[in-house]
Structures are given as structure tokens and as C-alpha cells.
């Protein structure tokens, strides 16, 4: 074949230019949100591309205190964490049972869970609101946690099924020969092997709950709103007084920062969790 290295085709150069342009847009947008959060609104409009001269942490204080982002951040952390853990506690044994028992029943149940992946949230929002209102669980953390747990089940079961299927059966056989009960084998032998999968499932569910908006807006119209509710509330409160962009960007930074941190720390895991299993 060719001995000399080939020059890349012009199309390829254009393509790569496009890639780096998109990468730059994404990174600049993030950097710009963070930097603008440190600037004064008047200054922001005079020099849209300017950098903060003296960082105004005041914006963060305003978003955090007056904007209600502090309480919302706590609500978000609490609801997202508990709901993700609960979803995994419920899904892990179920996924394991579905993988290890292969008969018509377990195949049908796997299919029923998989079909849940195709149900858009708006189908559930009215019934769940009516149902939770009946048992006084609207504007309650418990109510939102229950909803997020249920919404997480199809995907978590699906994801964990893949991880459990890759556990060699020999391990369980060895444990059974040693006289371990089924529950003990599951907890002490199988779960440690799929620890990576459990962490991935937790991360993805945490991110999904962190961002979830439809149910948060509908169910948490009181003082217990999560971050998306606080963001909408903040924009609403500024509608007539003129937008305090500095504080708005500070609020968005509070929403973004944990995602950026998680993604730079565990990005590969997150990407794999969201894409592996699709190629099969």
C-alpha cells in the first residue's frame, strides 16, 4: 500500500474543524456561565464578553439566600440521593432474579420493565398527582422520592440486568457448595462483583433526579421545591423588576457545578452506563 503518510482529505480537515468548534462552544458556554455569575448585571450588558474585574460573590449570596437556591439545593441532594438508593435497593434483587431464572414468567416480567422505558412522564403525571394528593403526599419529600424511585425502575432494572448477566455462575456455585444461603450468596458474593454497575446506576439516577422538572414542578409547588423549581421561581420573581442576570447565572452555576464535578471525576463511568447495552 502507500509508503508515504497520506495527507488527510480536505473533507476530514473541515470535519475536524467542526468538531473542535463544537467542543469550544460547549466549553466556552460553561466557562461563560461560571464567569458571568461573578459579574454585575449592568456590567454584563455593557461588555457581554468581559471578564469579572472584581469577583462579585454577592450574586451567589443573593441566589443562595433570597433566590431560595440554598433550600432547593438541599432538597435536591436529599431527594435525588434517597430516591436513587431506593431504586437500586429495589432493582438489584429483581434484576438478579430475572437474569438467573430464565422461564416464560421472568421473560415476560423483563419485557414489562423494558416497556416502561418507552413511557413518557406526561402519561404518569396526572394520575400520580391525583393519587398523591389523596394521601397528602404532594409538596412532600416522601411523595417525590416515591415517584422518582418508580420512574427509575425500568432503566435501573434494565441496566443492572446487563451487569448481573456478566457475573460467572461459578461464583454462586462455589458459594452454594460452601453452604451459603441464596440471600447470603447474593449480598456477599454477587453484589461485590457488580459493585461498579451499582455505582453507575446510582450516578445515572442521581443525575436524572437532579434534572427532573415535570414532576418537581407539579408536585412541589410549596416551599420544598428542588433546584429546577427554584430556577423557574427565580425567573418568575424577576419578571417585573428586571432580571438580575448575575444572580440568575449564580443560580445556574449551583445547578451545574455538581454535574461538572461528577462528570470530570467519573465521566467514563457515566458515559459507559448511558451507552453500553445499546450496542447489543
Amino acid at each position: 500500500m502507500q509508503i508515504l503518510p497520506r495527507r488527510p482529505a480536505p473533507l476530514k480537515i473541515v470535519g475536524r474543524g467542526l468538531v473542535w468548534l463544537l467542543v469550544a462552544v460547549t466549553l466556552l458556554l460553561l466557562a461563560w456561565v461560571f464567569l458571568t455569575a461573578l459579574r454585575d448585571t449592568r456590567d454584563i450588558f455593557q461588555h457581554p464578553f468581559g471578564l469579572p474585574t472584581s469577583p462579585r460573590w454577592h450574586n451567589f449570596a443573593k441566589a443562595w439566600n433570597q433566590g431560595g437556591f440554598s433550600k432547593a439545593a438541599l432538597s435536591s441532594v436529599y431527594v435525588a440521593t434517597v430516591a436513587s438508593v431506593l431504586a437500586i435497593v429495589l432493582s438489584a434483587p429483581c434484576a438478579y432474579a430475572l437474569v438467573r431464572r430464565r422461564n416464560r414468567m421472568s421473560n415476560a416480567l423483563t419485557l414489562v420493565f423494558a416497556m416502561g422505558l418507552g413511557v413518557p412522564g406526561q402519561v404518569l403525571v396526572v394520575p400520580l398527582f391525583v393519587g398523591l394528593a389523596k394521601v397528602q403526599l404532594t409538596n412532600s419529600y416522601t411523595g417525590l422520592i416515591l415517584v422518582y424511585t418508580a420512574l427509575a425502575l425500568p432503566f435501573t432494572v434494565f441496566l443492572l440486568t446487563g451487569f448481573f448477566a456478566s457475573v460467572p455462575r461459578v461464583l454462586e456455585e462455589a458459594a452454594a457448595i460452601d453452604g451459603a444461603s441464596g440471600v447470603r450468596t447474593f449480598v456477599q458474593v454477587v453484589l461485590p462483583v457488580v459493585r461498579g454497575g451499582l455505582i453507575t446506576a446510582f450516578l445515572l439516577q442521581f443525575i436524572a433526579n437532579w434534572n427532573e422538572t415535570l414532576f418537581a414542578v407539579v408536585l412541589m409547588q410549596g416551599d420544598k421545591g428542588t433546584l429546577p423549581v427554584a430556577l423557574i421561581g427565580f425567573v418568575q420573581s424577576q419578571q417585573f423588576s428586571g432580571m438580575d442576570w448575575g444572580a440568575l447565572f449564580a443560580g445556574m452555576t449551583i445547578i451545574l457545578a455538581p454535574l461538572v464535578a461528577l462528570f470530570s471525576w467519573l465521566g467514563t463511568r457515566i458515559i459507559q452506563g448511558m451507552t453500553v447495552g445499546i450496542g447489543k
Partner: peptide, 12 residues
């Protein structure tokens, strides 16, 4: 970098 936006609440 291209992947990251899909993790962010679109309201941002």
C-alpha cells in the same frame, strides 16, 4: 466535551 450537554437540565 460533546457528551456533557445531555447531562444538563435543558432549562439552563
Amino acid at each position: 466535551a460533546l457528551f456533557f450537554p445531555c447531562l444538563v437540565n435543558a432549562m439552563v
